[in-house]
């Protein structure tokens, strides 16, 4: 009951959405819209809330144990401050909520991402070696892309940029396409296994 019934619900909902895909009948459209909006989206929103509660719970437990207490408190203060600000002053332009988003979240998040520029530079120096034929091709393709997407490419020759575009749109694209086809077939198989009840890892272990 605790495993079979959810499995049945999963299979039925999946089958329903699979079937309505092939119809433009108003009833099919209505079912499609209702399931995706009223069930899928709302339940997904609750899943996000579960993530938030879980984050708070783990940090509170960490504070109790005295692990990284200061950092955990800072995280929780950040977490609590956002809904409090939104509740009091709303989320419109110029609200304190958006002030924190613009002046705390956005600059820090983009700076964390900007750190990667330095590690890419370091990796280029220390790890990007032409040890073999394929490695040499990899290195060459990277340099062609880097030059073509800078002003140097314009200064060299229009043909160089055309060549770089050709590499990107043909041989490079063909490898990506093969990967995409592989992923497509893999996802298709996994989805079928889920609907047929063969894939059950999402049910987790049976609680004792």
């Amino acid at each position: 009951m605790r495993r079979k019934f959810p499995q049945l619900v999963c299979g039925l909902i999946g089958l329903l959405l699979f079937v309505v895909y092939f119809s433009r009948h108003p009833i099919a459209s209505s079912i499609n819209e209702t399931v995706t909006r009223e069930y899928w989206q709302i339940v997904f929103a609750f899943a996000l809330l579960v993530g938030v509660v879980s984050f708070a719970k783990i940090n509170l437990q960490g504070i109790e144990r005295g692990e990284d207490r200061l950092y955990r408190i800072i995280s929780l203060v950040g977490l609590i401050s956002m809904p409090v600000l939104a509740l009091i002053w709303g989320i419109g332009t110029g609200s304190p909520f958006m002030w924190v988003f613009d002046n705390v979240q956005v600059p820090m998040q983009s700076t964390v991402f900007a750190l990667l520029a330095f590690f890419v530079a370091s990796a280029s120096l220390r790890g990007f070696r032409a040890r073999s034929g394929p490695a040499f091709i990899l290195l060459l393709a990277a340099m062609v892309a880097l030059i073509s997407r800078s002003d140097v490419g314009d200064l060299m020759s229009a043909r160089f940029s055309d060549f770089a575009e050709w590499i990107r749109s043909n041989p490079s694209m063909s490898a990506r396409r093969a990967i995409l086809i592989g992923i497509g077939l893999g996802s298709l198989t996994t989805s079928l296994r889920v609907l047929l009840g063969l894939e059950r890892t999402w049910l987790g272990k049976e609680s004792k």
Partner: peptide
């Protein structure tokens, strides 16, 4: 598991 069934089933069905 029931809400999870909704999420997993919907995803698999449209996929």
């Amino acid at each position: 598991r029931f809400p999870m069934a909704v999420l997993i089933g919907s995803g698999a069905g449209v996929a």
